[in-house]
Amino acid sequence: MTVVRLTLREAANRKVLIVGAVVSVAFLLLFWLGFSIAFNSITSPSDPTDPAVGATIMTVLGLYAVQFLAAFMAVLLASGAVAPEIDSGRLHAILARPLSRTSWLAQRAGTFAMLVAGYIVVMSGAILSIGAAIAGYGAIAPWRGVALLALEVVVLVALGTALSVRLSAIAAGVIVIALYGAAWIGGIMDIVGTALDNPTLQRISTGVSLVIPSDALWRGASYYLQSPAFLIAAQVEADTGNPFAGNAPPSGLFVAWAVAYGTAWWLLADRWFRRRDL
């Protein structure tokens, strides 16, 4: 656990934790302010907007922002997990100790994964609590949704860590961010493909989600994080929907694929790290 302790201390001393906390509190305050003003507006008798629909859209957008921040945090932490430690020489003093490379990598990347997954849990809980406090918001299955969000960021940490074993921090970071962007485009293609009933676009989107499942995991998570009233309204009126969110739960097979995908990157990171010369 010494490497976990060192990694946490590094995060604390490099201001990652304090800056992350300050920015997050500011974000939550802003969300609370915006949510309360908007919700008061749509609950006035003159506004035709269904309050349940409005609350869901705002909450899901808030959660999307949290997911986005956590994903970038995952990329930034993981892409610098290994390469800078080797380049600086810090790793050599540590690995000269009776510590296996597998243990070091698992402790270091595992700490980053726990940090971002913890961030997701705390921030998602805070957003849902603000929605509940102001609008009485209740999601379909919040824990399932949050678990899928946590899976998304852990997958990104695994991918970033593996690339960090082979590439410089900046190259690893650029690749993961590019893939994350590609996944987002894939998600948009799915929404457009569904709206236009175009199977080609949907197939491409499915292919992208297999190559990089981050956005598909978000869309699966977002289904569980919407209110039941919103989904009923969306089914009644075809034009009611959230372009950032999914209208169907993720399939068990896809979730299994995402778990296998993340595990494969973890195993690959370990294999590459054990084999490389330092």
């Binding site: 060192l6 001393n13 600086s88 003093a93």
Partner: peptide
């Protein structure tokens, strides 16, 4: 072991 290229965490 003292590595040739030594660097220790400067936040400690």
């Amino acid at each position: 072991y003292l590595p040739e290229k030594f660097q220790y965490p400067d936040w400690l």
